[in-house]
């Protein structure tokens, strides 16, 4: 009996040890980047491994924020992320509602067209997307980034919303009708508020997705640095300042800390969404 318990404890211990070692390699790059943001250039090159900066100074962060325009990039990223997410939320919620609850002419065909887009890579559409934005006169603007970022069918979100709206009992809808609600009112007053859990998932997934986007903002802001997002900004900064590694680390920290914070606060919705995606 005791022996069995001992074996069990040892086994659990080994599992934890393994998971901790792997975990160390998983967080090390982030800790390294955060600590490098506070190091002086000299300290950075003297001691590359250490995770605790000897001198806590904010020079790098201030330099990057003001002189390298990261204040502008930060606001750009925030605006683009908020705008794109809002658009995607509105359109997938409305489409998901009718796809989940109604039979209408052309529904099957519509769904098939949307589904067909899943495996099309962005690289195959980026050139015409650039041309579309150009013809709207929006190259290098935040609005251009928002509109093109919201493009596409968002099949996962559609399926999540459709699945959720489908299982809402009909009685609620009938009651709304009796109260004199029309089609839109029923959706807006009764159904949409009920779908908050899915809306949360969509908001957090789309925010993370847009915040992290690289190819689209890179291509669309090639001629207008003032509209760059953080990812594009840091890429350009490295191109121009290859030796300023503490500055690059500071820029990297500014770019990822908000999204890591958002994820840790709301990870339940995100993980549920990801898991739901593979099930549906």
């Amino acid at each position: 009996m005791n022996r069995g318990k001992l074996i069990y404890t040892v086994k659990t211990g080994i599992t934890h040890l393994l998971l901790i070692v792997i975990g160390f390699f998983w967080v090390y790059p982030f800790l390294w980047m955060f600590s490098a943001s506070f190091k002086t250039q000299e300290e950075f090159f003297r001691d590359k491994l250490s995770l605790i900066p000897g001198s806590f100074q904010f020079d790098n962060i201030i330099r990057i924020w003001t002189k390298a325009n990261f204040n502008v990039y930060f606001v750009n990223t925030l605006v683009v992320t908020a705008g794109t997410t809002l658009l995607v939320l509105i359109m997938t919620s409305m489409s998901g509602y009718v796809l989940g609850r109604y039979q209408f002419f052309g529904k099957q065909a519509l769904m098939a067209i949307f589904m067909a887009s899943i495996s099309i890579p962005l690289v195959s559409t980026i050139i015409p997307v650039y041309e579309v934005i150009k013809s709207m006169g929006l190259v290098g603007t935040k609005l251009g980034l928002i509109l093109s970022g919201a493009g596409g069918a968002h099949v996962v979100f559609l399926l999540l919303f459709a699945g959720y709206y489908r299982q809402i009992p009909n009685e609620l809808e009938e009651a709304a009708k009796i109260d004199g609600c029309g089609f839109f009112q029923t959706y807006f007053r009764v159904m949409m508020p009920l779908a908050t859990p899915i809306a949360s998932t969509v908001i957090i997934m789309e925010s993370i997705w847009t915040w992290n986007a690289f190819m689209l903002p890179l291509v669309l802001t090639l001629n207008n640095p003032s509209s760059r997002t953080l990812a594009v900004g840091l890429y350009a900064f490295r191109g121009e300042n290859t030796v300023d590694w503490t500055g690059i680390a500071a820029g990297g920290s500014i770019s990822v800390i908000p999204i890591i914070a958002l994820f840790i606060l709301l990870q339940r919705y995100f993980v549920d969404g990801v898991a739901g995606a593979v099930k549906s």
């Binding site: 658009l87 579309v132 509109l147």
Partner: peptide, 25 residues
């Protein structure tokens, strides 16, 4: 009426899909 409403509800997704995925292809 229902059909019209349904198409109105999917129209926004459809427009964005056409503009940034269908047309580009």
């Amino acid at each position: 009426r229902i059909n019209l409403w349904c198409w109105a509800f999917v129209s926004m997704t459809l427009i964005f899909y056409v503009a940034f995925q269908g047309w580009p292809i």
